[in-house]
Amino acid sequence: MTVDKRKLEILALATGSTALTWILNHHLGLGPIVANGLIGVLAAFLMPGALAGVAYTSSFVGMSSLAVLPSLMLALMGGLFAGLVIITTTEIYAGIGGKGGTTAAAAALVTRAISGFLG
């Protein structure tokens, strides 16, 4: 089995970006909007276009409230799901504003469903 390095990069970046947004949002108390804006601006300056898009998209998951993602572990799981959705839906609805948010909402809802299932 071969492991695609690019896909691993996306998964790692998505997980990290979600966790960082979640920490800025809840632990540092910046709130979801400022946390997401900060991550997006940093990503746009530090990364090439496609990877910045991945970081910004997955940071939407980290905007979730504590009722949806109550712990950092669940935020990491949400980021991983966001990465998987991004990898599998790269070409679908490209160029539609809000595609990233829809991807993030799917990841957040799946994570909430799994955490609810596991109790």
Partner: peptide
């Protein structure tokens, strides 16, 4: 409270 709601 669901992240991604606004993007949707």
């Amino acid at each position: 409270g669901v992240g991604g709601r606004l993007g949707t």
